[in-house]
Design a protein around this nucleic acid. Structure first.
Lengths: 322, 322
DNA sequence: GCTTGACATGTAACGCGTTCCAAGGTTTAG
DNA sequence: CTAAACCTTGGAACGCGTTACATGTCAAGC
């Protein structure tokens, strides 16, 4: 392994000049540059990343924190890895499994300068704890954090939900049920708001019994249909908070010999792979756009320049369940 | 940001002693240790990761190389991240998108000591090119590499395929078709071997027309069924090289009003999330076990000690398609 | 011809731990 | 009581680039 010092000695120039060549400094004469590059080539030299990181105080690495790796998370990561790669940043994954201590590791790594910045996908630690690390580097989050120093790229769900609703209403569905996720979450609140406002706008019935909460998984979706079947005032459509739930609803509906979408229309959320496989109408969530914005939010601290966020919007992907 | 040097000055001890405390060296008196630890606490000191990496020549980071992030890859990564984390190693992702140059980046990073070792999940570069980097650090691969210095944790598909076949035969299916992947791959060869040997063993017909090749996706699976329907000598079961294909086969079979599994039994491979969702019988591929083994193979170079690989085996997950 | 400035290059300190070797002090065995 | 053995601690070099500041050179400007 040759070092910069060796290159300097072999070429007869100083370390500074060699370093200038490496960093494409304009203050090197073309001949010198040539000579040094030739020697680097010969000796198969590459600069040691750790030495650079140490002296620059930057690692060009960004940490991504997540509890686990779901398809959605993956799409986000993919988008984020993509754009940060374009700017020369590597990404490193911290899967916490929901363990606070393990998650803290990632923040400690920001402090010890293993990473220059952090992206939170899902986190379990207290916002106050997390924000105390802001002084060591930029932190952005996908999930909303409610802290001025930790911006989030989460989108307001109102528009997406409204889009799905308008579509259902347009198709003639009027008795629309909701499978919400975490009851207290901001997402659920804005979805619910969208629902209530739209139903009012079209003078359609709002039935408290058509609200399901804490519905997350395929299994939960199946449960919803089962409980639906015991009703007399059955809804004719159901809006799900994610595609997993929609998949569960769909498979159980079929098992119950419901004709989808005639007896029951189903709309999912996120436009995941699963929804495509199963032909579920869903709301396209521009996840990689959000991922890009996440990086752009880090740009000031990472690249020293502000970058404009791109505007994002939901769109409807019509398939066979509506 | 306090540094080790400051801690040394504040405590009145030398840097060496402070470093010993950090590294849990036994050659420090308890009182000294206490004092130094107290000062570290006070000044909110954490050692700089880059300085450690530079002087130790090790970063405690392992790179994972993949073209993209599919569910299977993810499961492997998850397992790998898990076990390497247990031994204090961070993992960093290199998604190459199938770009040779981008992939080479990862290998260069091994050379520049950004990572201590590399895990190849999928790679597009020539084995000779890759193996030239072995001198800079250990490399293991999931996919078979056919090079003595790059061990692989891929499993021989023979057993898994045989398992599925035995199951089908036991259930009374005799006309069994195959949806293979890449025709020339080792996996396909061993699967085919398993098929031919087992069919011979049970004196069952082997029909060349029941071999499909280059079948990878849901869409491909659907195509297979369509082409099957045009046949008079239709098979009564089909063994798919992965669950995606099986899902395609299943959905098209249903569309064609075939009764699964009576008219057509379907077996997938990998036991992916999708197979569970759709109730497809499949072969459980112990992916996280392979991931662990991948790490264990790196252990000698990373931890300086040999670790025994765990034996792995396929198993059958019986569901509703057989 | 002399000053000014642009440009090429060098010097040396710095970033921050780790580790080999040596030294001073103390305990233990003989 | 002394020599060997051990423990605790320090000194200083090392790992490898980066960078602020200094120096030397040559050409343009007056």
């Amino acid at each position: 392994m040759s070092t910069l010092d060796e290159i300097a000695k072999l070429s007869g120039f100083s370390k500074a000049t060699v370093s200038r060549v490496l960093n494409h400094s304009p203050h090197v004469s073309p001949e010198t540059r040539e000579k040094i590059l030739a020697i680097m080539e010969e000796t198969d030299y590459v600069p040691n990343r750790n030495a650079i990181s140490l002296s620059k105080g930057q690692t060009q690495q960004i940490g991504m924190i997540t509890m686990d790796l779901s398809e959605l998370i993956l799409r986000f990561m993919n988008g984020f890895v993509e754009i940060s790669g374009r700017y020369g940043f590597q990404t490193i994954i911290y899967t916490t499994g929901g363990d606070k201590q393990k998650e803290l590791q990632a923040f400690e790594d920001l402090k010890r300068k293993r990473v220059d910045a952090l992206l939170i996908l899902t986190s379990v630690n207290d916002t106050n704890v997390i924000s105390s690390y802001c002084k060591y580097g930029s932190i952005v989050s996908w999930q909303r954090m409610d802290h001025p120093e930790i911006p989030s790229v989460a989108m307001n769900q109102y528009d997406g939900y409204a889009l799905a609703l308008e579509h259902l209403i347009e198709r003639g569905y009027t008795r629309i049920a909701n499978a919400f996720g975490r009851p207290s979450s901001i997402n659920t609140r804005s979805r619910r708001l969208a629902y209530e406002q739209l139903m009012a706008k079209y003078s359609l019935p709002v039935n408290e019994k058509w609200y399901y909460s804490s519905i997350y998984s395929i299994r939960d979706g199946e449960q919803v249909v089962k409980s639906l079947m015991e009703r007399t005032d059955r809804p004719d459509a159901i809006l799900c908070s994610n595609d997993l739930v929609a998949a569960g609803v769909l498979s159980e509906a079929r098992r119950q010999r419901l004709d989808v979408p005639r007896d029951l229309a189903i709309v999912g959320f996120d436009n995941s792979e699963l929804s495509r496989t199963l032909g579920i109408t869903t709301v396209r969530n521009p996840i990689s756009g959000q991922a890009e914005n996440a990086f752009l939010l880090l740009a000031p601290s990472l690249l020293g320049r502000n970058m404009e966020l791109q505007p994002l919007s939901f769109s409807l992907v019509k398939r066979e369940t509506t």
